[in-house]
Design a protein around this nucleic acid. Structure first.
Lengths: 325, 325
DNA sequence: AGAATTTACGCGGTCCGTAACCATG
DNA sequence: CATGGTTACGGACCGCGTAAATTCT
């Protein structure tokens, strides 16, 4: 009779199952679907991981998985690192194999996707016609989540990127707000525009958490003012509609005003009232970016710099700080 | 008849084979030995990697592997990241399973191992009697290599750590040189000691690349002086022997002078002549350090700070800058 | 009861080791 | 011809899918 000591190696699929489990909010079946496996397979992966490490990673209520233990949190972090690294290896391979082919998955807020990205995309597809584009839209919080779970490659975003440890972000351009009102509106005659005067009118602007709303509300609050926001939307187009309806004056991101399409609305710069916002482009830290992904970032920076220099819809007094890392 | 499209996943063992291949200087057989596999297995891993990525990773002369391609370099970097991450996961497991058990692999130069580590180790083994210690010795360059190939956990080192991108290092204590000479030697009467006076005598000191020899030679050179080094050794003990023999005066790291054992040799401080050296403790970047490994670093910092405050062999005027990151 | 997870079991694929083959210095 | 790497092949292992059992909502 012999004793066989069997040595189970930790494998990548087990880590994938763990990470996907967490991405799905601890549903083994959903994780299995995403991984194109059946539930028992994923269950087994998790069990194997816990067995091999000799530590419970998952908190359970009976058979339901409800969260991570302290050990699980640490393992999770390193598991994501490992998967990022292996993903990078695949990306390196693709880059050297067919440099001009691939998929570019971008996530952006509505304002970015609608008003900033179009010229960038136009130039990019011209340069890389064989690269398939995916544009995802969502709140800043959601964009970050998409990056973290590697559902997108790049995110274009103004808020909430600074504090994420696992992301890298590059500043691209800065913007501020402008006022829009139907031609003939009383506020258009008032010079200079002050925070107080804005408060005299009903306001239509962004929902909190979208497109710099935090800094906007904050600025009013810091001056002890309470603007009367009659409607808030996630989406500049919606704001414009209601400003046209006469519901109130609009405060929108300046790059969202289009001289041609919005000729019926008059525009006033508000950059003397509110802090500048910096729009950044972010990706998973330590992730290998394919050449066309890096190129997209460069095109984005070039196009937005151009936009700020006044050849685009927005004329600005000073030159933009064109940031290149 | 059906077409079966078989999807080969990249696996960790393939990455391990690639990384080990490089660590062994591109010998497939040696890599296989280290991995406890046979040559064909490793060969297959490498082939599978190249096939799946669709890119040549290895440069070949006939069947001999001689180096990495550009793509191989990039893949290698990320492969090491992936393995570091999975190694971290195993370490997290061990920490939560048996926090006080494990192996601590330290690499140090001779001076550190002989004169600095002993009191640190004494305290550490008292606190963690169940942790097995391995102490490796080597040149600074070798220590870095050992860290990079994950052959040791920590390295204690004065030179060459700053420039390595893949290592993290913490400054621990600073030191300078001292002069040693047999009692009654002419130089002991000379006050103050200057670089010029040192040059009047034959010198015994460290080999270039060891224990701050670079800065030592550099200092003389910057003053246009050329010391007459009659013997250089990698090892303070050897230097002491020849100083006792009367071969010359010794210039050694100050923490290597031991008042009791070296009572026959007189010591003079030389910190007014040479730059201070900072000894650091380094580990692989992004690697998870087990609690007792972190504790070892802390003990090292505490003990060396104590040493510098004058309760150890070396009395210093000012308090040491106890650096905690 | 029903949804979700774990246990049981069998098949197919594959991973590694042995052995033969090839190339280089 | 010896050293080192690749190709060929077979057996053991195990990972996944199907199906039954179990447990919590």
């Amino acid at each position: 009779m012999f004793m066989f000591i069997i040595f189970h190696d930790m494998e990548l699929r087990q880590l994938r199952s763990l990470v996907t489990l967490i991405d799905t909010g601890f549903s083994v079946s959903q994780a299995a679907d995403r991984l194109h496996l059946v539930q028992p397979a994923v269950s087994q992966h998790l069990k194997q991981l816990e067995e091999e490490l000799g530590v419970r990673l998952l908190r359970r209520h009976g058979k339901r998985l409800v969260g991570l233990t302290a050990a699980g949190e640490q393992v999770f972090r390193h598991a994501r690192e490992a998967l990022t690294a292996t993903g990078s290896i695949l990306a390196v391979g693709k880059d050297h194999k067919e440099e001009r082919h691939g998929v570019l998955r971008i996530a952006a807020t509505h304002t970015q996707a609608r008003y900033v990205l179009p010229p960038v995309i136009r130039r990019f597809v011209q340069e890389y016609p064989e690269v398939a584009l995916e544009i995802h839209q969502g709140t800043p919080g959601r964009l970050i989540e998409l990056l973290q779970r590697d559902a997108v490659d790049l995110a274009v975003c103004t808020e909430g990127l600074g504090q994420q440890q696992d992301l890298t972000s590059l500043p691209c351009y800065r913007w501020n707000r402008c006022l829009i009102a139907p031609a003939g509106h009383a506020i258009l005659a008032q010079r200079p525009l002050t925070l107080e005067r804005l408060c005299e009118h009903p306001i239509v602007t962004y929902v909190f958490g979208f497109t710099g709303r935090g800094n906007l509300s904050g600025t009013f609050a810091r001056h002890g003012l309470e603007p009367r926001v009659v409607l808030s939307a996630a989406d500049t187009d919606v704001i414009k509609v209601y400003v046209r309806e006469g519901l109130g004056i609009g405060i929108i991101a300046d790059m969202a005003y289009q001289p041609d399409a919005d000729a019926d609305l008059e525009r006033r710069d508000l950059s003397h009232l509110f802090p500048w916002e910096i729009t950044r482009i972010a990706h998973l830290k330590d992730r290998y970016l394919r050449v066309f992904q890096r190129r997209f970032i460069a095109v984005f920076q070039e196009e937005t710099a151009l936009m700020q220099r006044g050849s685009g819809p927005i004329a600005r007094k000073e030159n933009a700080p064109s940031v290149v890392p």
